[in-house]
Deep mutational scan, measured.
Amino acid sequence: MFYPNSPQTSPQLTQIPYGQQYAMMQRQIQQPYHPFATTEPQARLYPYHYQGPIQQEQGGFITQQSTAASPQYVQMRVTPVDQSIMSGYPNQTANGSSSSSFNYNIHPQQQQQQQQQQQQLRHHAMPVGSVPLQDDRYRKQLIVNYLAPDVTSTDLHELFSRFGELDGARIIYDKQTNMSKGYGFVYFCHAEDAKEAVERMSGYEFHGKWLKVGYSTNPLNIVPSNSSPYVHAGSRGAAG
């Protein structure tokens, strides 16, 4: 039997160049792979992502010199942007860049009308829970959420009447099932009393439920100042 490094198959040491006398086997001759043993700084910083320098080929596509990437890492192929796409944008300079302001050559009167329309939209648009300043009635009506099913309009009136005089209180019921929808409205005579009720009743436990109280901004629920107070009856038909 002959071994790869046996004296019968191995040459004389004098015939082997210096430095390879003890590297006779194939696994010894093959050098191990060192990912950080390279002179390129990109490979030292990113050993798993770097795959060699990027070269520009004919046709405008950018390719990489090395083989496919590892399945664990996804390499994105980048193509140059066609400058003709950006030619339609206004205020574009000769080098292809555009300024931040756009001039669509709008007539001054049209621009003024658009600004007025935007101001009107901001004036009428009102986020949930906010209180408008032009109508004091919005500051007097509250919406009470997360009410228990057994709470009546009379219970709601008695709960909030300790903060001040009320114009009314009612629970909203479903017309088909005649069941409470879980929320109601309270109408105060003074805005200061309503503000105190919002601050003190939010998070209050009532009939096993934690109440959420806020201003009601729905104009359909506003009680006119010259109208008669609501009837605080315990029956659902009268309260709904």
Rank of each mutant, 00 (worst) to 15 (best):
S227L: 08
Q55H: 13
M201F: 02
Q42R: 04
E165W: 09
S130A: 05
L211D: 13
F185G: 01
S99D: 13
Q110W: 04
H49W: 09
K212V: 08
N145R: 06
Y3D: 14
A238L: 07
R44V: 15
Q51E: 11
A37L: 15
A23W: 13
Q55Y: 13
S161L: 05
G88H: 13
Y3G: 04
L166S: 05
Y46T: 01
N105Y: 15
F2M: 01
S161I: 14
S227Q: 04
L211Y: 15
E40S: 02
N226L: 07
S87H: 10
L156V: 13
A169L: 01
I85Y: 05
H207G: 04
R200E: 06
A68F: 01
G59Y: 14
H34D: 15
A68L: 11
A125S: 07
Y89I: 04
V198I: 06
R122A: 03
H190Y: 14
I85N: 04
S97W: 08
A43Q: 15
D135G: 14
M179D: 07
Q15L: 15
Q65W: 13
G168Y: 12
I85F: 08
E199R: 07
M24T: 02
K212P: 14
Q141K: 07
Q111C: 01
I106Q: 13
N226Y: 04
A94G: 08
I143N: 13
T67L: 08
T152V: 09
L121W: 15
L147S: 12
S227N: 12
P35Y: 15
S84R: 14
V78F: 12
Q30M: 15
Q110E: 11
H190F: 15
P229T: 02
Q116A: 14
P32V: 09
E40G: 12
Y173K: 08
Q28N: 14
Q31L: 13
Q51W: 13
S66W: 15
Y48M: 01
R44H: 15
L156Y: 12
T63K: 11
N91G: 05
S235R: 11
V74I: 12
P4S: 12
P90V: 11
T152L: 08
G240V: 10
S87G: 07
G164P: 11
G184V: 10
G129P: 12
Q111E: 00
V74Q: 14
E158T: 05
A239H: 03
S180D: 07
N226C: 02
Q56N: 03
A233V: 10
I62F: 15
D150N: 08
Y215W: 15
D193P: 09
H124Q: 02
E57V: 10
L147Y: 00
P4Y: 14
Q26E: 14
S87L: 15
V128Y: 12
Q120S: 11
K181L: 08
Q114M: 07
A194E: 05
K212I: 03
E40L: 09
I171P: 04
Q31F: 15
I222T: 10
G164K: 06
N145F: 03
Q26I: 06
Y18W: 12
Y73P: 09
S87K: 05
K195S: 06
S153A: 08
L142H: 04
K195E: 01
L159D: 15
Q28T: 09
P71S: 11
M76Y: 01
A23L: 10
Q65L: 12
H157T: 12
S99I: 03
A37C: 07
H157N: 12
D167M: 15
Q28L: 07
I171T: 06
A125M: 15
N145K: 09
M86S: 09
F61I: 07
P219L: 05
G240D: 06
Q176C: 10
L211E: 13
A191T: 10
N218Q: 06
F61H: 04
A68V: 04
P229S: 08
P224M: 07
I62C: 15
A43C: 08
Y73G: 10
Q12C: 09
N145Q: 12
I143S: 05
M25L: 12
R200C: 13
R170M: 06
A68E: 12
